[in-house]
Amino acid sequence: MDDSGLVSFFRVESCGLYRIRQKADGEFISDGFPEISKSLFDWLSDRSVLNTIPWDPKEHTRRDKVYCKDVHFDSYTGDYLFVLWFANSEAAGEVGEVGEVGGIDLNSKVGDTNNDSEKIDAKNSTGKELTIGKAMYYWFIPSLKLVASINFKHSKTDIEAFTTYIKKWFDNKNKHPNKT
């Protein structure tokens, strides 16, 4: 399948743990972009998709649910690819033909080859617990201090949802001895 997309690059100006100072710039303490990328990758690996939301969805009912569908690390380049899943009931009218939506199995493991999004229609039910929505693709390039969002016609980009996901993961799930 030939599919073209749009890649947007964003420079990572600062990333890691900083000591906050009054009336001055923060002082870098530890864990820059490469370390944060690896920590996120490690946290997501071997989880079920259902357990990749870095906040309590029952506590934050108005916040969009964002899961991680897949992760990949390229040992040659040091780059990471994160495929997030923006769960949204409004996507029903945006994906595929009329009456078709995309869904992923929340009980599958992150990166599971059977975790591809499936078309859902009224005539065909797979019997899996699926959540509808759209994929969001993010490419971390630590060596160049860049993050790229990749948008295809079947996916979406949402920088606010993406940055919230990373921030909430760091605040709520990242275990670091210097974090307070």
Score class of each variant (00 low, 15 high):
M1D: 07
D2Q: 08
D3T: 12
D3G: 05
S4D: 14
G5H: 08
G5S: 10
V7S: 13
V7T: 11
V7D: 07
R11M: 03
V12T: 05
E13G: 09
C15G: 06
G16V: 02
L17Y: 03
R19W: 05
R21Q: 13
Q22P: 08
Q22H: 06
Q22R: 10
A24H: 11
A24N: 13
D25Q: 14
D25M: 13
D25Y: 10
D25A: 15
G26A: 14
G26F: 10
E27F: 05
E27Y: 06
F28G: 13
S30L: 14
S30A: 15
D31N: 11
G32V: 06
P34E: 01
E35A: 15
L40Y: 06
L44I: 13
S45R: 11
V49C: 09
N51E: 14
T52I: 03
I53K: 00
I53N: 01
W55K: 03
D56E: 15
E59D: 08
E59N: 07
T61L: 12
T61D: 05
R62W: 04
R63K: 11
R63P: 05
V66F: 10
C68P: 10
K69L: 09
D70H: 14
D70L: 09
V71T: 15
H72W: 07
H72V: 06
D74M: 03
Y76W: 07
Y76R: 13
Y80V: 04
Y80A: 02
V83M: 07
V83W: 01
L84H: 02
F86D: 03
A87G: 05
S89A: 12
A91Y: 03
A92S: 11
E94G: 00
V95Q: 02
G96F: 08
G99L: 12
V101S: 11
G102E: 14
G103K: 00
I104F: 05
I104H: 04
I104P: 00
I104C: 04
D105Y: 00
N107E: 11
N107Q: 14
V110F: 08
G111C: 08
E118Y: 04
E118D: 09
E118A: 14
I120D: 02
I120F: 04
N124Y: 12
T126L: 14
G127N: 09
G127A: 13
E129Y: 07
E129G: 06
I132F: 02
Y137L: 13
Y138R: 05
W139E: 06
F140K: 01
F140Q: 00
F140L: 11
F140C: 02
P142A: 00
S143P: 02
S143D: 06
S143R: 08
L144N: 08
V147W: 02
S149P: 12
I150D: 02
F152A: 04
K153G: 09
H154S: 15
S155R: 01
K156P: 01
K156V: 10
D158L: 06
I159A: 08
E160L: 12
T163D: 14
T163Y: 05
T164R: 08
K167G: 08
K167M: 05
K168D: 11
W169P: 01
W169D: 00
D171M: 11
D171N: 12
K173Y: 03
N174K: 09
P177R: 15
P177Q: 13
N178D: 15
N178M: 15
N178F: 15
K179I: 09
T180N: 10
T180W: 04
